[in-house]
Amino acid sequence: MATVILVRHGRSTANTSGLLAGRGEGITLDATGREQAALTGQRLASVPLVAVVSSPLERCVQTSQFIIDRQSGTPDTVLDRELLECDYGLWQGRTLAELAKEELWKIVQAQPSAATFPGGESLAAMQARSVAAIRRHDAAIESEHGPGAVWVAVSHGDIIKSVLADALGMHLDMFQRLNVSPASVSIVRYAVNRPSVVSINSDAGDLSWLAHSAPPAEAEVGGGKGHQAPRRASS
């Protein structure tokens, strides 16, 4: 099975100012976001990526470039509108403090499967398109590059949370229990029987084991031996 690394974009200017950016233009990484994305690129430098698929919004493209720049090879690069941020409709561009007073906010928190943003998209539709896109890319990449292929999808918080919820077999109404921080790494492998969630919301640590780890075909009873620990330089 191939391995997909789900990366949220680094912190954006909208995150800093408390705005719901949505699909608005001109939202870029702030200074901290660039540092976060650079660190993620550094963490992934030892992992030979075959592809980087990104939401076309600028904050994701910027994050993708930090990852691509640290690769020794040249991964395929794709912009996919199916990984776009949720269409928040009339909520887009408003402050989170203001939106928290809306009645819909309570539904988004407690029963997101029933939430449709005015003039925009439902969270259920967002999940359906994003999960379908990730699974489609994963199947195509495995077919072309083999079961050991590793690729990256750079997208947005709610998108990644919804993909993880699907992989975990969670109802969408539980996806708010998941946290996906800026520039964090989450790892999923799609097998014949079920997805396997390897990591969620990781923002530190060695990832070089992904270059050498052969994923088991099925879940190992008892938990398995895990991946090999990174080698430490001798003093």
Rank of each mutant, 00 (worst) to 15 (best):
Q36D: 02
S235P: 12
P75G: 06
T116L: 15
S186G: 01
H137R: 11
R59A: 14
R136Q: 15
G26N: 09
M126F: 14
R135K: 14
I68L: 15
S234W: 10
R23D: 00
P195C: 13
D206V: 12
R94D: 11
A219C: 08
A229I: 05
L178D: 09
F175M: 14
A139L: 13
I68P: 00
G73D: 11
P182N: 13
L39I: 04
S46L: 06
L79Y: 05
D203V: 12
A183S: 13
T95M: 08
Q36M: 12
N201A: 02
F117A: 14
T28C: 02
G93I: 11
S122H: 07
E220K: 04
R81W: 00
L104S: 07
V197C: 08
V192T: 08
V53L: 09
A139G: 10
A115K: 11
H145E: 09
A211K: 01
T32Y: 03
S46K: 12
G18A: 00
L39G: 04
L96I: 09
S181T: 05
T74G: 01
I187M: 04
F66R: 09
E35M: 06
A132D: 13
G224C: 06
N201V: 09
V61H: 02
M174N: 09
L6M: 06
P216L: 09
D138P: 06
E102W: 11
S72E: 15
E58Y: 00
Q42L: 09
R94L: 15
L164N: 00
L96W: 14
V108M: 15
M174E: 13
C60A: 15
L6K: 01
A140W: 01
N179S: 10
D138T: 07
I27L: 01
V185L: 11
H171Y: 00
A217H: 12
Q65E: 15
V53Y: 07
A149S: 14
A153P: 00
P48E: 14
P195I: 06
G93T: 04
D76P: 00
T16N: 04
G120W: 01
L44W: 10
V192E: 15
Q71V: 00
A217W: 05
S64G: 14
S130Y: 09
Q65L: 10
R189L: 03
S184D: 04
Y190Q: 11
T63E: 03
P75R: 03
I5Q: 02
A140D: 13
L79N: 07
Q228P: 04
G148L: 11
S234E: 08
E144P: 00
D203C: 06
A165R: 03
Y88I: 04
I200G: 07
A110H: 12
L20A: 08
R23E: 01
V4N: 03
S234D: 12
Q65S: 10
G224F: 04
P112E: 11
P118H: 08
A183D: 02
I200M: 10
A14H: 03
C86D: 08
S122L: 08
S122T: 09
F66E: 15
A2F: 00
E35C: 01
E58H: 06
E144V: 03
L210C: 01
W151Q: 07
L104A: 07
G223E: 06
D206G: 10
P118E: 15
V53S: 07
D158V: 11
E85A: 09
A233W: 10
G89F: 07
I5L: 05
F66Y: 15
P182V: 06
G148N: 12
A100K: 14
L164C: 03
